[in-house]
Design a protein around this nucleic acid. Structure first.
Lengths: 229, 229
DNA sequence: ATTCGACATTCTGCATACAGATGCCGTTCC
DNA sequence: GGAACGGCATCTGTATGCAGAATGTCGAAT
């Protein structure tokens, strides 16, 4: 585990908030793997603070579902059972479907235009085979759907679920041909949204995420010793 | 704010967990109202602990969305804007619809039987006008739907949303005729589930929650000074 | 009478200190 | 040789202390 970003990087908010963001980022991006221990004193020395803010950060991360805690034991990066992972993917598909459906009904003209333009532009990334860049575009694309639903609480739920799912679906675009298929699926969603066809948008979005789920399970469940939630 | 249950009441788990449960219960049941301050030293003396576990409990409650925190200010019971409240009700309806649909498809025979029996029994509570008892039955009824979906993550999402919504929909069964209408709506949901008609179950469940939303908004937004999330 | 400002009070944020629990390892006994 | 026991090291759980921020109050000036 290499030396990671310290609190100088993220300046806003209290010490605890900075640590929450930093650690959550490490977990979501895969710098820390499921099952890895989060020792309080190690974190304290690494972030150059005392154990008190570390403990509060760990508790918040625990509430977010990113780390698992049990009394008198170290916090560990959450590792889930296969059935729970499946339930998260299914929930994600349902939530994406809701967002796509509501986006089709509620997006402003500006949001529709931006969605379409950004999507069309991404074809270049597909042709170039730029996996990293397409991955970033993909994140942005889905975030547009979440925002387009114009429902703050749904936005929170789907964002939270995506974060918890992130450690288990890395490298989805490494699979051969996945970029082109992703673009086609995005295209179906965008078309349905621009037609204001909520039902179609929901269905295509559901299928899209379900396919991603299939593609990712190959890499999923990183380590042994899966502990439920 | 009266003297409330101390930690002797709830014996399981660590001190912090006990406090989280106790405070969350006070918020959800309405013993503490939105906007009310949660002073650290007051809570510490009241629960006969130091400020350290109090702070950890407050942070967890903040992550759960039940209290709002900002740096160098006391935690307050979460109060939301009207639009955010609406977004939570809408999210709740969508989640209930998912649960009802999945329940129709996945409930075991035992679960279906238990759901039907419990529902049928509740007609007595309607006739007796037993609001409190029917409210308890209602909670149980919906929990059956959440479990029946056989999706742990969806269960967490819907449970979390229900808890955050609870402070704003008290006394929904005080409205005249609401008991009988609730029973009829439950009946439609149960019928659809027993027929394994997922689409119908989802639609009826959505309508049911949407109606509850309308009934509750009368009492909603308890105090002035609404702070968003 | 009102408004502005300095001071005092109160409360949060964080660090430190101590107590209890857990787990490891060596020793000892069977 | 293996298993059980006890001591030690390590880590978590909680209490306490201190510094800084926020708020309310009192007084003075306009």
């Amino acid at each position: 585990m290499r030396q990671v970003r310290r609190r100088e990087i993220i300046r806003t908010g209290t010490t605890v908030e900075q640590m929450v963001r930093a650690i959550a980022d490490m977990i979501v991006t895969g710098a820390m793997l499921p099952g890895e221990r989060l020792d309080e004193v190690s974190l304290a020395t690494r972030f150059e603070v005392s154990r008190t803010p570390v403990r509060e950060a760990l508790r918040e991360l625990g509430a977010m579902g990113l780390v698992a805690r049990e009394p008198n034991h170290s916090a560990v990066v959450t590792n889930v059972t296969e059935t729970y992972l499946h339930s998260m993917f299914e929930a994600m598909a349902e939530l994406e479907a809701i967002c796509a459906r509501l986006s089709a009904e509620r997006m402003t003209v500006d949001e529709r235009r931006a969605l379409e333009l950004d999507h069309r532009a991404s074809i270049k990334l597909v042709h170039a085979g730029a996996e990293e860049d397409y991955s970033a575009h993909n994140t942005e694309f889905h975030t547009r759907l979440y925002r387009g639903a114009h429902n703050e609480h749904v936005f929170e739920l789907v964002t939270q679920t995506r974060a918890r799912l992130a450690p288990f679906r890395r490298a989805q675009f490494r699979l051969p041909g996945r970029l082109a298929r992703s673009y086609e699926e995005h295209d179906a969603i965008v078309t349905a949204i621009l037609r204001a066809d909520g039902a179609a948008a929901g269905q295509t979005a559901y299928s899209h995420v379900a396919i991603v789920s299939d593609a990712s399970t190959v890499f999923a469940v990183a380590k042994t010793g899966n502990r439920h939630v």
